[in-house]
Nucleic acid binder design. Structure first.
Lengths: 217, 217
DNA sequence: ATGCAGTGCTGCAAAAATGCACTACTGTAG
DNA sequence: CTACAGTAGTGCATTTTTGCAGCACTGCAT
């Protein structure tokens, strides 16, 4: 109920709320891209969206959160997908398939690509994302707990939730957004293969340092 | 150089800097415990430490960061320990031993126990910790990259850094601070055993939900 | 249509956080 | 001793963020 990530809205009230949120998000992303984050004030965003500055913080915790609204939606999607996986699947596999299912739609989304461009153009935003993300680990842990019948505070759900977030982040970070989606999926598969094998030291191959003999400081 | 987590200081300048940092941290922790976080202003902390409010933010990013200064020091320790592990050890094992080595000193530290009491008394602080923590995953990934000769942006170091942080957090979270340290170490070992085995679904045992048939909402 | 409860939006005040320019002191070199 | 570079600490202006209390509108029931 009152899930801010959901799209469905019946009453006028709910619809207006979604519209406001959407307007704030859109204005924020557009202005961030145009002028850069530091040249945009909450005031600016709110004037563009037609609400008071105080209202902004009724919707988002920080100025930058409006731009990362996509991540919240993703969290909701992942939880739904994970919950829907057949109970017969082992948790790690369910997690794997969940991410695999969600990613194609994710990287195809225009809003998400815009968000990605933003992060590329203004790397100072990356650290701010972490806060948004921590929410995801929490939510995944919760879903795993539900699945396994364990307490949400137990070791295993926490572990798997954190691992899921780590895998997603590591993969996306290592992925070149110009490359085809398959490469991202391949990296995701690599991560889960590595996890299933007990995280053995990788044997040469890609990702090796381009030879820097005197790097060790 | 100029490592804020280091204790050693030769010149007067460095020493004074450490003293200021220490004074701010001590004042913050004390007042947080006495009156609760929301009843303490940055002004209060700074008056107690004898510096201006502006100076506070030269040392810490947010008001709460002063209280979580311990976590930064821990990060530095972990990186040092991990770097010092013999190169022959597989990364996951090195990570395991690193955490195992660091934990006893950690949980014995008076400052750390104080910090823990604080988190127990004011749970609203817990989410704020996450930001501090994300730094640790980064640092661990860096150290693993150094160890393995992989790029710090490659998949494996990121994965292992994130996993390391997750394991530490999950274990500490599940641990009752009144219990002996051995229990915490046991949980740590469980985590790594589970990781080495490919994160199989746990078979019954502890941590199972205390039977809640109608819990699923 | 009328009244009521719930709650979204707003203004206001205070606190948190940041950028900038300036002062004063430390450490170092002449 | 003196001059100089570097930088911790400060004050000020601005922006970000939060708590509070009132207003206004929606949804619902009569």
């Amino acid at each position: 109920m009152a899930d801010p990530t959901s799209e469905t809205a019946q009453g006028l009230r709910e619809r207006k709320k979604l519209e406001t949120r959407s307007a704030l998000r859109a204005a924020a992303v557009r202005m961030y891209l145009e002028r850069g984050p530091s040249a945009v004030t909450v005031q600016d965003i709110c004037e563009a969206a037609g609400v008071s500055a105080r209202t902004f913080f009724n919707y988002f915790e920080t100025k930058d959160d409006a731009v990362f609204d996509w991540d919240r939606r993703l969290t909701g999607q992942l939880v739904d997908l994970l919950t829907a996986r057949p109970a017969s699947e082992p948790p790690l596999q369910a997690l794997h398939r969940t991410l695999r299912t969600a990613i194609p739609a994710l990287v195809a989304d225009a809003g998400w690509r815009e968000r990605r461009r933003l992060l590329g153009a203004y790397p100072e935003l990356v650290p701010k994302l972490l806060h948004s993300n921590s929410h995801m680990a929490e939510a995944l842990a919760e879903a795993v707990a539900e699945r396994t019948g364990l307490s949400p505070d137990a070791l295993y759900p926490r572990l798997l939730g954190g691992v899921g977030l780590t895998v997603l982040r590591s993969s996306i970070r290592a992925w070149d957004p110009e490359s085809p989606t398959e490469e991202l999926l391949d990296m995701l598969d690599s991560c889960f293969a590595s996890l299933a094998a007990g995280l053995p030291q990788p044997t040469g191959g890609e990702g090796v340092r381009p030879a820097a003999p005197g790097t060790a400081g």
